[in-house]
């Protein structure tokens, strides 16, 4: 079952006089429960893909389905509610709210869920902090935590709403190697345990090795798809596009 489907998605930015094509006719289908890495060089369009899947950016053309919803015609409030309930975000820069404690940061996405009362929220926060092994730091504020701890708080925050998909844009890029591996292992464990779909971008080979699905992008197009079975990658190269279409991209 596909949890995310992109059909002929194109994204263009206006940069002064000319248009920059960040994504060029991208079509993808992502299965539920995968641990998927989007890899590619800088500027290839990884973040743009994640933003569109995360419904915080809209494509210039093409169709997007997320968790069974056709996202295309939805207004900002509908998208906000979709994000609140089905998507969790992990950022490269952690993006915790500095005035709130670790526990309050984790609780934040639950505050808008009217069906949860105080007790329910506290219980879930507790559970999530345990999952990321930060129960002891519940009362600490972000500036009293290390980078790795902050990212673990961010993971707890992304998971607390029990989302279908967690999106992580270069989650380990601001962490040293060892801490990054720890974070990755934690995400992998959660992926296995809760069956939450993880989609993350990276250009780090070691991070790619932790994934079980791979999408390679280059110049705004998908160039290869990988599936790992029993430790072995099965790579499919996606054909270069017709010369006419390519002429519009980079030389």
């Amino acid at each position: 079952m596909s949890i995310v489907v992109l059909e002929h998605v194109t994204k263009e930015y206006r940069l002064g006089e000319h248009m920059v094509r960040a994504l060029d006719d991208v079509s993808l289908s992502i299965e539920s429960g995968v641990f998927l890495a989007i890899a590619g060089p800088s500027g290839s369009g990884k973040s743009t893909i994640l933003n569109i899947i995360g419904c915080i950016d809209t494509p210039s053309s093409g169709k997007v389905h997320v968790a069974g919803h056709d996202v295309s015609g939805q207004n900002p409030d509908q998208l906000a509610s979709l994000r609140a309930r089905t998507i969790g975000f992990i950022f490269q820069t952690f993006n915790l709210l500095p005035v709130l404690t670790a526990a309050e940061n984790v609780e934040y996405p639950l505050l808008q869920m009217e069906e949860l009362d105080r007790e329910d929220r506290k219980e879930r926060v507790q559970e999530m902090l345990e999952l990321v092994q930060l129960s002891k730091y519940a009362k600490h504020r972000p500036n009293q935590l290390s980078g790795g701890q902050r990212q673990r708080v961010a993971i707890a925050r992304a998971l607390v709403t029990k989302p279908d998909i967690v999106l992580a844009d270069e989650p380990t890029a601001n962490l040293d190697h060892k801490t990054g591996e720890g974070i990755l292992a934690l995400m992998r464990e959660i992926n296995r345990k809760l069956r939450t779909t993880f989609i993350f971008s990276t250009h780090d080979k070691k991070v790619i090795d932790a994934a079980d699905r791979l999408i390679g992008v280059e110049d705004g197009t998908v160039r290869l798809l990988g599936v790992r079975k029993e430790g072995q990658w099965a790579i499919t190269n996606v054909a270069r596009k017709a010369p006419a279409a390519q002429a519009q991209g980079k030389p």
Partner: peptide, 15 residues
């Protein structure tokens, strides 16, 4: 960035 984060987490414009 904080505002962007809150909105990504599902806060509406009105919120």
């Amino acid at each position: 960035a904080e505002i962007g984060t809150c909105m990504a987490l599902g806060d509406t414009r009105r919120t």
